[in-house]
Every structure is written in structure tokens, then in C-alpha cells.
Design a protein around this nucleic acid. Structure first.
Length: 277
DNA sequence: ACGAGAACCTGTTTGC
DNA sequence: TGCAAACAGGTTCTCG
């Protein structure tokens, strides 16, 4: 479900409820998500204070007192929500994790497809953790630029769309925003990644940043079950230029073409054949 | 070593 | 109407 803008929106929504709050109790209702839920999930949280909630790529990082970090990933269908604590907690369908917070709120993780995960790691060693060791640059940071993207794409024999989904090239893009960024940059998703000129790679890097910023400003994209931390829907799906717009007119002023869809690496890609070369 | 494709799991939509 | 197939925002493993 969630790509970088959705995870960042969830982070911003959760942070005021979590940061500085102590976890009074916790419970796991499922032994298995994408990886096993740590058997000591509750013990690792209970009594800890969530000092900061940060994000790396599509991972949420709850930095706990005691130098531990709880790592959360929402997979395709995961939701994290803060709800009022009243009465005993009765898990709804697909509620897998719950943390009871100081101040009368609960944090609930729900994930029908169970592609999400929870894990713990010591804060100092996060960069070396298998989840993070191979990740490329954060696209919204200064470390991601035209030249950096150009160099990374140069090593890819795949189509540029596939390369954008490779988290080693740039961290946090997913299927929606890869298509959207390529449209903004006027680049054909089938084009071999290593064939992009420096100028066009620069244009693409700018488009990636712009589309992610715009999406965050809209609270992310709600297609199926993504919601913000308070349950509100994102709005960026109304601004898609190509994604899920097969057969619709190309949004570029004066372009008579229509958006096409095809399959790349078992994922749908959307583009305008006239505008994207 | 790299890239393509399958696999993980459940729910919803589409097509016969 | 009913059932099967296709498809969905991600990541990782296997195979060639």
C-alpha cells in the first residue's frame, strides 16, 4: 500500500501522539507477519518511552528509551492508527499489534495481507541492519540529486521504471510514484536505465522530489485501505496524471494521446506514449 | 553477479 | 447469480 509519502504522512500524524509517551502495555495477536513477530514484543515495549518517531525509506522507526528502535513496515496493506483507549482492547479482524500509551490512547497495527513487519534493533547499529544496509539515498534529501541518480542508473541493465523501484537506487519510491515521476520527466518507462543522459537523469531526480513532495502535501494517496493516523483519507489519488488512468486523456496541455497501461516485472506501469520518450 | 519471475497472504473487482 | 481469475501501494527468494 504505502510508499514514501504515505509512510511520511502516517509518521507526521502519529508523532504528536507517540513522542514523549510511555508505553504502559503491549500485545501481539499474531505470531507471524512477513517475518515472525518477536516473541518478546510486549516485553520490549512495556515501560519504554517513545522518544522520537522517524522514517527511513518506507520503514517507520520508533526510537525507544534504552537505545532500542522498533522498526515497523506497512507492507502493502498495513495501517497504523491511534485510537482512544476505552475498556479492554478487543482486536478487530487483522489487528496484529497493539500498544497502550500513557495518556489514554492506543496504537494499533492492522494488516490484512500481512506483508508488513515489526522488528527491534539497537539504535547505534541501525545503518548496518539488513533492512537498511543496502538502501539508496532518501529522495527528498540533499544526498539525492541528478548526478547521483545518473550514476546509479548507469549500473542498471533494466528499464528505468524497474530501476526506480529498486530501493538500492533510491529509497522509498513504489509503483505509483515511479510511474508519476516518469510522466513528469517525460521519460518512457521502458527506456533502458543506463541510456538516460545526465540532463534527463537530472530532470527525473527533480520529478521524483516534486511528486513525492506534492503527495505528502496531499496526505498521500488512498486507493484501497490506506488511511492517515487519524483514519482520514489521503487526497493525492485525485491528482494522479497517469496511475490507474488507462484509456483516459493525457493530462498534458495540447497532447491528443491517451494513457496506456502495460506490465513490467509483474507490476502495472502507466504512461503516455506521446509525451514519454 | 544480475535480472526475471515466483512467492508470501487476503480482499476486492472483473469476466465468463 | 456464482465461481474463478486477475489484480492490489512491497520485499525477498529462487532460478537461469
Amino acid at each position: 500500500m504505502p510508499e514514501l509519502p504515505e509512510v511520511e504522512t502516517v509518521r507526521r500524524g502519529l508523532a504528536p501522539h507517540l513522542e514523549g509517551r510511555k508505553v504502559l502495555g503491549a500485545k501481539a495477536f499474531s505470531p507471524m507477519l512477513r517475518i515472525p513477530v518477536p516473541a518478546d514484543f510486549a516485553d520490549r515495549l512495556e515501560g519504554r518511552t517513545i522518544e522520537r518517531l522517524t522514517r527511513r525509506a518506507k520503514y517507520l522507526l520508533a526510537e525507544l528509551s534504552g537505545e532500542e528502535t522498533m522498526i515497523l513496515h506497512l507492507g502493502m496493506s498495513g495501517q497504523l492508527r491511534v485510537v482512544e483507549a476505552k475498556g479492554d482492547f478487543r482486536p478487530a479482524r487483522h489487528d496484529h499489534l497493539m500498544a497502550e500509551l500513557e495518556g489514554g490512547k492506543r496504537l494499533v497495527f492492522n494488516d490484512p495481507r500481512r506483508f508488513g513487519l515489526v522488528a527491534f534493533a539497537s539504535r547505534g547499529a541501525l545503518g548496518a541492519h539488513p533492512f537498511f544496509a543496502g538502501l539508496g539515498p532518501e529522495p527528498l534529501g540533499n544526498e539525492f540529486s541528478g548526478p547521483v541518480l545518473h550514476a546509479a542508473l548507469n549500473n542498471c541493465k533494466t528499464a528505468v521504471k524497474q530501476a526506480l523501484l529498486d530501493q538500492r537506487v533510491v529509497a522509498g519510491l513504489g509503483n505509483i510514484y515511479a510511474s508519476e515521476a516518469l510522466f513528469r520527466a517525460g521519460i518512457n518507462p521502458r527506456r533502458r536505465a543506463s541510456s538516460l543522459s545526465g540532463v534527463r537523469a537530472g530532470r527525473l531526480a527533480k520529478s521524483v522530489k516534486a511528486v513525492l513532495r506534492d503527495a505528502i502535501r496531499s496526505g498521500g494517496s488512498s486507493l484501497r485501505n490506506y488511511v492517515q493516523a487519524d483514519g482520514a483519507f489521503g487526497l493525492f489519488q485525485h491528482r494522479f496524471e497517469v496511475y490507474e488512468r488507462e484509456g483516459k486523456p493525457c493530462p498534458r496541455e495540447g497532447c491528443p494521446g491517451a494513457i496506456r497501461r502495460f506490465t513490467q516485472g509483474a507490476r502495472s506501469t502507466y504512461y503516455c506514449p506521446r509525451c514519454q520518450r
